[in-house]
Design a binder for these strands. Structure first.
Lengths: 150, 150
DNA sequence: TTGCGTGCAAAGGTTTTGCATGGCA
DNA sequence: TGCCATGCAAAACCTTTGCACGCAA
C-alpha cells in the first residue's frame, strides 16, 4: 500500500473535507457513506476503507477498536506537523454502551508510567477503559469508593 | 442475560475444566471447539459464545480484542472470591500476544482519577492496556518518547 | 496514454439469533 | 413436567479482495 495518494481525486478531497469539518469527531465507515448519501453524493465502502487505512498508516487518522462485532471508529487528527490535539482516551460504559472521549493530561501520564516502570509501550488507540458512566452509576445506586469531586 | 447459569450442564463443566487446566492461557472460541473435537467430544460454537459472554459479564473471564477482523481472545481469571485481593491490571502485547499482569499502586490511582474528574467508575477487571511488551518494543526498534528507567 | 482510483459484487471472517430438540432439576 | 441449555443453520455484520471501468496526470 502506498504511503501517499498519487492522484488527487474527488472522493479523497471530499472525505478529507468531511473529516476536517468537525475535527475530533468520531465516525465509522458506514457513517461516512451515509453522510455522502445525505448530501446527494455517493462514495463506495471499499474506497472509504482504503483511504482510511492509508491515512491510519500515515498517522493522519486514528483508528479505535472498541469491541468485536461493532465497526471500527476513526478520528481525523491531521498532519503531524500541524497537529495540536492530544491523544484521545476512551471510556466505554458496560451498561448503556455509551462511548466517552477523554482528552486528559493525567491519563496521558499512564503511558509514561507504564514505559518507565513496566517497560510497556502503551497504545492509547487500542486501549479502552470499561466501567460505568455517570448516569448508569447513579441508576445502579453505585457508591464509589473514591469521593466524587464536582 | 442471566448473571449465573441456572443449570449445571456437561458442556459448561467441561468448558470450565478446559479453562482451569491451564490458567492464564489465551484461547479463541474456535480453539475451544477444536479442542473438544480433538478429545472426541463436541460443543457448539453458539454455546461457547453464550457461556463466555456470560462469564465476561460476571468478571470470571476476560475478553481481549487485538484487532477487527480477527477473533476475540479469552482468558479465565477465576471467581472473584478466590482471587487475590490485590487489584491486577492487564497489559496485552499486540505483537506477540503476551499478557502481562501488573500489580501497581500508581495504576490503581487511575480509577480514582476517572471517578473524581470524569465521573466514570472504572472496572479494572475488564480493562486492558494494549501496546508493546519490552521484547517486542526492542525488536521493533521502538524509541519511546519517555526514557526507560531500569 | 498510462496506470492509479473507484465501486460493485463477492468472498471471507466472526458473532449473533431463531428454533426445534435435548437434558437438568 | 417445566424450563433452561444446546446446537444447527441461517442471518447479520464488518472488512477485504477481484476486477472492469473511469479518471487524473
Amino acid at each position: 500500500m502506498n504511503v501517499r495518494a498519487r492522484y488527487s481525486t474527488k472522493q479523497q478531497r471530499e472525505l478529507i473535507e468531511f473529516m476536517q469539518a468537525d475535527p475530533g469527531r468520531h465516525f465509522t465507515v458506514a457513517e461516512v457513506c451515509e453522510y455522502f448519501r445525505s448530501q446527494g453524493q455517493s462514495i463506495g465502502t471499499a474506497t472509504v476503507y482504503r483511504h482510511l487505512e492509508r491515512m491510519v498508516d500515515e498517522g493522519v487518522v486514528n483508528k479505535y477498536i472498541i469491541d468485536s462485532s461493532s465497526p471500527a471508529c476513526f478520528e481525523y487528527v491531521g498532519e503531524e506537523k500541524h497537529r495540536e490535539s492530544e491523544l484521545c482516551f476512551h471510556c466505554k460504559c458496560e451498561q448503556c454502551g455509551r462511548l466517552i472521549h477523554l482528552h486528559c493530561e493525567e491519563l496521558a501520564d499512564i503511558g509514561e508510567h507504564l514505559a518507565s516502570h513496566h517497560q510497556f509501550i502503551l497504545n492509547p488507540m487500542r486501549t479502552v477503559f470499561y466501567g460505568l458512566c455517570a448516569e448508569c452509576a447513579e441508576k445502579e445506586g453505585y457508591r464509589p469508593a473514591a469521593k466524587i469531586v464536582p
